[in-house]
């Protein structure tokens, strides 16, 4: 599997030299952001078995951290990216406090309510956040004299790709570490894992915080890149789109949601250009999500694994 990742990375690394139009590069940049969101969600949803419906709140925290820091406080846009990771981790710590003790549907409800609290906070503090209209004209990225805004998104492409690569290495390392294994043990048998001395609360808090860092950074990047921050990111639309990427890609695989993020994002963007498909594409994604839950609960990654397995047996 690792050679495939390497090959994919190789292609993505040289792609901007061949694809010069800024619109295609723009699509890739957004796909990278979605891939970060989906694969990090997989850490809490797939590995820790935590039904965190506030994952988008971490992203939104990053978005507004960058917007406020760069525009209002005059922080260098580049610095807002790690800053967004830090504030998102802090946000996760706050959510984790109540969530660590709860089970099942209550986790869904509290995390969802939390993202709504954040939304209401953003709407109510319009003198800081711009309220429902959001914030515009956020300072663009600039390193030394190099202005990212003038290079047809060449630089942004590599920043986004760099974030995705870092995030993926981080996730693969984390999920293969003893911590990742203890998360799986906990998910599959809470009592047994508890008896083996794994602290449920500690693991859940850590998993949530760990899953928030890169979405926060991606959020900051997103705000700096698009130069806007809008409360829309906290809506049902983003939530269900990213959820479909995790589920269709295959939970607890990390790479599955990344591939699914690419596939779904490009599929929906292509359909967006087709007349009559602007709304219909979301229906297709929702139906695909249901079909996967019904017929392939492991997601497409599992189906591919089974396929490979069969192939090997014939040989």
């Amino acid at each position: 599997m690792d050679w495939k990742l390497a090959a994919g990375l190789g292609v993505l690394l040289i792609l901007p030299f061949f694809v010069t139009d800024s619109y295609t590069r723009h699509l890739f940049i957004l796909a990278f952001v979605y891939a970060i969101l989906a694969s990090n969600w997989d850490l809490s949803l797939g590995y820790a078995g935590l039904f965190n419906f506030g994952h988008i709140a971490f992203f939104a925290t990053g978005v507004y951290t960058a917007a406020i820091a760069a525009k209002t406080l005059g922080v260098s846009p580049m610095l807002t990216i790690p800053l967004g990771g830090a504030t998102a981790a802090l946000t996760a710590l706050i959510v984790a406090a109540p969530v660590a003790r709860l089970k099942g549907i209550y986790v869904v409800l509290v995390t969802f309510a939390f993202s709504q609290v954040l939304l209401q906070l953003i709407l109510s503090q319009s003198h800081i956040t711009g309220g429902a209209e959001g914030m515009v004209r956020i300072p663009a990225l600039q390193i030394g004299d190099y202005k990212f805004i003038r290079d047809f998104k060449f630089g942004y492409y590599y920043v986004a790709l760099g974030l995705l690569v870092l995030s993926t290495f981080y996730l693969l390392w984390l999920t293969r570490s003893p911590f990742g294994k203890s998360l799986l043990a906990l998910r599959d048998n809470e009592e047994y894992a508890g008896a083996r001395g794994i602290s449920i609360m500690r693991a859940r808090v850590l998993a949530l915080v760990a899953s928030a860092i890169f979405p926060g950074m991606a959020g900051s990047f997103f705000a700096i890149y698009l130069r806007v921050a809008s409360p829309e990111v906290l809506g049902f639309g983003t939530l269900s789109l990213v959820l479909s990427m995790v589920l269709i890609g295959g939970i607890a695989t990390i790479t599955g949601p990344i591939f699914a993020a690419f596939a779904i994002f490009f599929a929906t963007e292509t359909l967006a250009g087709t007349r009559g498909m602007e709304e219909f594409r979301f229906i297709i994604v929702a139906v695909a999500m249901i079909l996967v839950l019904r017929f392939a609960p492991g997601g497409l990654a599992r189906i591919l694994q089974v396929f490979q397995f069969k192939k090997n047996r014939v040989l």
Binding site: F51, F53, I105, V108, F236, G237, L239, S240, L243, S244, L247, F282, I283, V285, A286, V287, M289, I290, L293
Partner: peptide
């Protein structure tokens, strides 16, 4: 929760 969320969409 997920299937009804899909139904909502």
């Amino acid at each position: 929760v997920m299937t009804t969320l899909a139904a909502m969409i």
